[in-house]
């Protein structure tokens, strides 16, 4: 296999990169100065070598415990459980949540061969059984689809016996949405989960 083809294939394996984009990226690297290529290669290796999972929240980090877990100004009574590391970034960006996180690294989906034992659930239970735990509430922030709901129900049944309050993110209309263009399911949910003003 030619070196160019090897690079094209490597890009093609990345999520969201089709064959045409892979070609474009490969030829961009080919034309770029050698420093840029070296920088990219080093960045790729460095991220794999230096990034670990936080021993507490299982988020990706360059040091364990991660910055969020180590931050003493954060509330220690509530843990927000998310599917992926990017969800932590999304929720933290809102600035409205100042508690801790736990990253599951996936959702229950039997047809993809993923059961509860493949997720970081045991790690969550270990955190909650810790004698020093101050946690009283778990917010389940999995996606509002079938697999997300299955995961959330499984967690709720596991966590309620521990005497914890288990909550779920609200479902309904996105901010700035136009009622006229909302689909039936979303609108129906928004009606079902309406709030008093």
């Amino acid at each position: 296999m030619s070196p160019i083809q090897r690079l094209v294939d490597a890009f093609h394996r990345l999520p969201g990169i089709g064959p045409k984009s892979a070609q474009r990226l490969a030829y961009h690297v080919l034309r770029a100065p050698v420093e840029e290529a070296r920088d990219l290669a080093e960045a790729l290796l460095h991220v794999k070598e230096s990034i670990v999972l936080c021993a507490r929240c299982q988020n990706v980090t360059d040091r364990s415990p991660c910055r969020i877990c180590a931050d003493t100004s954060r509330e220690r009574t509530v843990i927000c459980v998310v599917e992926e590391p990017l969800d932590v970034v999304a929720i933290d960006r809102t600035g409205g949540y100042r508690g801790l996180y736990h990253v599951l690294h996936g959702v229950v989906s039997p047809s993809d061969g993923i059961g509860p034992e493949d997720l970081k659930i045991e790690e969550l239970l270990r955190r909650l059984r810790d004698v020093d735990t101050e946690v009283t509430e778990i917010i389940v922030a999995t996606n509002p689809n079938l697999q997300g709901e299955a995961t959330s129900m499984y967690l709720a049944r596991l966590l309620r016996p521990l005497g914890l309050k288990v909550t779920r993110l609200a479902r309904g209309l996105p901010a700035g949405a136009d009622l006229e263009y909302a689909d039936d399911v979303t609108l129906g949910r928004a009606m079902e989960y309406r709030q008093e003003v």
């Binding site: 229950v108 989906s109 039997p110 047809s111 061969g113 059961g115 509860p116 034992e117 079938l146 697999q147 709901e149 299955a150 129900m153 499984y154 049944r157």
Partner: peptide
């Protein structure tokens, strides 16, 4: 929704058939 749930439940049944996982994982499905 039924079609998606059925596919998931059948996958879980096959997994349980191989004695992996726990039957109460079926509750949600």
């Amino acid at each position: 929704r039924y079609g998606r749930v059925l596919e998931q439940r059948n996958s879980l049944l096959r997994k349980l058939q191989e004695r992996r996982g726990r039957p109460d994982e079926l509750d949600f499905w």
